[in-house]
Amino acid sequence: MKLKIGYQALINGAMAQIETVPLDQAQELLSNSDTVFVDIRDVRELEREGMIPNALHAPRGMLEFWVDPDSPYYKPIFGEGKRLVLYCASAWRSALATETLQKMGIPNVCHLEGGFSSWKKAGLPTVEKISKPHAS
């Protein structure tokens, strides 16, 4: 099967339209109260690999619903006007997600260069994902 456009072309197109924050700049943003790191990875990735301290977990499959005030799933943190730094494992999903949020009209959104794998490889701070106990 021949696709009209492949994943790499989608990522390249998104990268040309969005802001990518280098690791050193992202590390400085970590202590900025006007910045929210948004982890869009699957919960199993967070439990296995950890996450950036104080990051908000917003699963990729729910992101558009969480940022839209007209959605029944809206999360007010996305309407506070803070800078959003999206990240995933390798900066592929976050590039596509950042482009989508820009198209939706979300201001001040960018993504992390190289994703969480680059963050972790650089020895930058991480924390364990704390699992919430299941209701019995």
Rank of each mutant, 00 (worst) to 15 (best):
Tyr7Thr: 13
Tyr73Ser: 01
Leu30Gly: 14
Lys75Pro: 01
Gln25Ile: 11
Ile11Tyr: 07
Val43Phe: 04
Thr126Glu: 14
Gln17Met: 04
Ile18Gln: 13
Ile18Pro: 02
Thr35Trp: 01
Pro22Lys: 14
Thr98Asp: 10
Pro72Leu: 02
Gln25Glu: 14
Ser118Ala: 15
Arg93Pro: 02
Pro72Asp: 06
Asp24Arg: 12
Glu19Ala: 14
Pro59Thr: 05
Ser117Leu: 13
Gln25Phe: 00
Thr100Pro: 00
Glu80Pro: 02
Leu46Ala: 07
Gly114Met: 03
Val67Asp: 10
Asn108Ala: 12
Gly105Ile: 13
Leu84Asp: 03
Trp66Cys: 01
Phe37Lys: 11
Ser90Asp: 10
Asn12Asp: 10
Asn32Leu: 04
Gly123Val: 14
Tyr87Asp: 03
Gln8Tyr: 02
Gly81Val: 11
Leu124Ile: 04
Thr98Lys: 14
Tyr7Val: 03
Pro107Phe: 08
Pro22Thr: 10
Arg41His: 06
Gly6Asp: 04
Ser71Trp: 05
Val36Gly: 05
Gln25Trp: 00
Thr35Cys: 03
Asp42Thr: 08
Leu30Trp: 11
Phe37Tyr: 10
Ser31Tyr: 12
His111Lys: 11
Ser71His: 06
Leu124Phe: 07
His111Met: 09
Gly50Cys: 12
Lys82Ile: 09
Thr35Pro: 01
Arg60Phe: 02
Glu47Phe: 01
Asp24Met: 04
Leu10Met: 15
Leu29Gln: 15
Gly13Trp: 00
Glu113His: 04
Lys120His: 11
Val21Cys: 09
Pro76Glu: 11
Pro125Tyr: 04
Gln25Asp: 10
Val109Tyr: 03
Gln17Tyr: 01
Met15Ser: 08
Asp42Val: 08
Ile106Glu: 12
Gln102Leu: 14
Lys75Ser: 04
Arg83Ile: 08
Ala14Asp: 10
Ser33Cys: 04
Leu10Asp: 15
Lys4Pro: 00
Asp70Cys: 01
Asp24Ala: 15
Leu29Met: 15
Leu124Gly: 00
Glu28Cys: 03
Ala122His: 02
Arg83His: 14
Thr20Arg: 06
Gly123Gln: 13
Tyr7Ile: 05
Ala9Ser: 15
Ala14Gly: 03
